[in-house]
């Protein structure tokens, strides 16, 4: 995944989480919907952030088979 796409993914996930928090504080969004948004957005945020700031994408390799 390109770094730009990963950053976009991170920002979208974080944005939807924050938006859900704002809407829930304004009591527009019910609590369960807020939780559902977070359950979807949090894993995407973690992986997106990792993919954005990881060192680089290496060459594909076959699994480790021992020494």
């Amino acid at each position: 995944m390109k770094k730009k796409n990963a950053l976009a993914l991170t920002l979208v996930a974080a944005g939807s989480g924050v938006a859900a928090m704002a809407l829930s504080m304004a009591s527009i969004l019910p609590g369960w919907a807020y939780a559902a948004v977070l359950v979807l957005a949090f894993p995407l945020f973690v992986l997106g952030l990792g993919l954005y700031w990881m060192a680089r994408e290496g060459e594909e390799d076959i699994p480790f088979l021992g020494y």
């Binding site: 359950v39 979807l40 949090f42 894993p43 995407l44 973690v46 992986l47 952030l49 990792g50 993919l51 700031w53 990881m54 060192a55 680089r56 994408e57 290496g58 060459e59 594909e60 390799d61 076959i62 699994p63």
Partner: peptide, 27 residues
Amino acid sequence: KFSFKTTWIPKTASAALFVGVVLVAIG
């Protein structure tokens, strides 16, 4: 530390499941 490291999906892996299961685990 792990999040800063070089990352790829192994050549032999079932790519969608390989990544998807991490998302499911956190979710």
